[in-house]
Amino acid sequence: MSAATETVKSAPGSDELSRAQSGMDVEQGTSLWTDAWIRLKRNRMALAGGIFLVSLTLMALVTPWIAPYTYEGQDLQLGASAPSAAHWLGTDTLGRDLLTRIMYGSRISLMVGFLATAVALLIGVLYGTISGFLGGRADMLMMRIVDTLYALPFIIFVILLMVIFGRNLLLLFMAIGAVEWPTMARIVRGQVLNLRRQEFVEAAIAMGLSNRKIILRHLIPNVLGPIIVYTTLTIPSVMLLEAFLSFLGLGVQPPMSSWGLLISAGAESMEEYPWLLIFPGLVLSLTLFSLNFLGDGLRDALDPKASKD
């Protein structure tokens, strides 16, 4: 075969046995998932992270009914005020209640975070796996397409999207997905290239399994670790990217807001009105930590050997 597969050619396997075993484990399905769930429940940090994320999502869903104020109602005479009994988290420079704005912002941020990441994940994992699995010319071509996407000037791309389609949340997901998936694809491809030449995959090929089945059953489950890790990191960075795009005019339209927008507005006046930065920043950080603990928990839970050590 040609160039790209050379990366593994010179590596005759020796720990293939263990790899093959883990591959078999995944294949066996149900018991693995049950085991994983039990292991996950034992991991307290992961559980706490999960609970936090679920309650946050629930809160976001019912925000319109429980928010103390409206997100756009201003009190210009009040202006930016520190946390008080009337405004628990204070108000922004236009006198709007920060708690309410964070609550409404979570609807946007969670939606963008999860949906855009899902788009990036779906494209990136499939693309990376296929590229790594096929190898050779196809891999070469697919990876050069990724290089091209990396290189195109992002801002021009955003400006064009905006001009052609106007302000649209769906577009925002697309734009973010388009930016985030290539990195995912590269990471997945690197892992798959390593896996591909291993015995359990070759055995699967010899058994006459279709490419589709090999990819879905053997390759993707075995690269879950890095995927989960990278995903938990992508979600918060996507939330921040949303703020940049919204500021340019592609996403959320003021007076509606998002965590990212609240944080960048807060950053402008961090010395004068620190609460405008601290509270949205805190919510984003907590979400990030929860995601990571949950992600680690999942990764450990899905890897049968990790817990044996």
Binding site: E72, G73, Q74, L94, F247, L248, P254, P255, A265
Partner: peptide, 14 residues
């Protein structure tokens, strides 16, 4: 696109 213009626009909108 600018923080300042956005703030004024939001105030007028309201």
């Amino acid at each position: 696109t600018s923080e300042g213009h956005q703030k004024i626009a939001q105030a007028l909108q309201q």
